[in-house]
């Protein structure tokens, strides 16, 4: 059976025209074409349409070729730029100046190239302070717990000793209050803290003979002296007794303070939280002074920071006292209160 068919004869024709077909296949192709006379024209077309280059095209290779060290009218700009860039060897520099002497019309171009070097303007970046990092040890703080506790204790200290009614948490009741505390990064806050200084506890203030340092201490001393429990070890439990030796009842881990007409429970956990939060924070605050940012050292107790936060939040001016709010809100004290409120 013949290899060549009507389906594949073009491939054999092409090989035949390009003279790559073996003699046996040439013979077979001829036989095939004799048997299929209608396809003979195709072979003739192949022969007619073969392209033959009629003329040779000359390419100017001189533009691509390099001549070592030789400056020409084609490449002189490269040498000029290299001179301006300061990367010419002494030999090339000499050759360039020689070229320019011989071609004075190019000297103006050389002068123009020399002018293309930019002179750096003096521009000051004004945010350097914000980029810098503080040196020294940063005191770690546990804001979630400590500042939340601060709010609780403030409200206790203001309300618990002289009031008969239930302690009222006005902020906690306002579910619509929305603190944007997520916007503050803890690292930013930590970087601003310089010093953490522990203050005396309620008990220590009350017992101390020293004059109160601030209003908070004064209030605490005044309120606490009348009702301060005295710790006594009884049957393995910590028992609290008032100074006038008035007996108190122990309920689980809760100490009950008898204070004239008032009966109010303080958990030991709350007392501990107060102790943790009765701390002065020294931190750096940014203030604008004649349009310039200045860092100033400020001191506040954690309790005062939380108070400031509450005050500014309620007044709706969060930008005011931003640093204080930044400190306080990051601790999510009101979230703490909200949770507490929900539980109740």
């Amino acid at each position: 059976m013949s290899l060549i068919t009507r389906n594949n004869y073009e491939a054999y024709l092409l090989d035949y025209v390009e003279e790559t077909l073996s003699p046996e296949l040439v013979a077979e192709l001829m036989l095939f074409l004799e048997q299929h006379l209608d396809l003979k024209e195709v072979l003739e077309d192949f022969e007619i349409h073969t392209l033959v280059p009629k003329e040779t095209v000359a390419f100017d290779k001189s533009a691509l070729k390099k001549e070592a060290g030789l400056i020409t009218l084609v490449n002189y700009e490269d040498f000029i730029i290299a001179e301006v860039e300061g990367i010419n060897t002494p030999e090339k520099s000499t050759a360039l100046y020689l070229f320019l002497e011989q071609n004075p019309e190019k000297q103006e171009e050389f002068v123009t190239y020399q002018k293309t070097t930019l002179v750096a303007p003096t521009i000051i970046f004004e945010g350097k302070k914000s980029l810098k990092k503080k040196e020294g040890v940063i005191v770690p703080m546990y804001w979630w717990y400590s500042s939340a506790a601060a709010v609780v204790i403030i409200l206790f200290s203001l309300n618990m000793f002289n009031r008969n009614e239930q302690v009222y948490f006005p902020i906690a009741d306002r579910e619509e209050v929305n603190f944007k505390n997520d916007a503050f990064e803890e690292s930013v806050i930590k970087d601003k803290i310089i010093l953490e200084e522990k203050l005396p506890t309620v008990e220590e203030i009350a017992r101390s003979d020293k004059k109160p340092k601030n209003k908070l201490e004064k209030n605490l001393k005044k309120n606490t002296l009348n009702s301060l429990p005295v710790k006594e070890e009884v049957k393995g439990l910590t028992q609290y007794t008032n100074i006038p030796k008035e007996k108190i009842k122990i309920e689980s881990d809760t100490a009950v303070i008898q204070n004239q007409n008032q009966k109010r429970s303080i958990t030991i956990e709350e007392e501990n939280l107060y102790a943790e939060n009765n701390v002065i924070i020294t931190y750096e605050d940014e203030i604008l002074d004649n349009g310039t940012l200045n860092l100033v050292k400020r001191k506040m107790t954690k309790l005062e920071l939380v108070r400031a936060a509450v005050k500014h939040q309620m007044n709706g001016n969060l930008d005011k006292g931003k640093e204080k709010i930044l400190f306080a809100l990051n601790s999510k004290p009101l979230n703490f209160l909200k949770k507490r409120n929900r539980k109740e």
């Binding site: 750096a120 521009i123 000051i124």
Partner: peptide
């Protein structure tokens, strides 16, 4: 040293 240059 470098923030001015970088900014520029």
């Amino acid at each position: 040293q470098f923030s001015d240059n970088l900014y520029r």
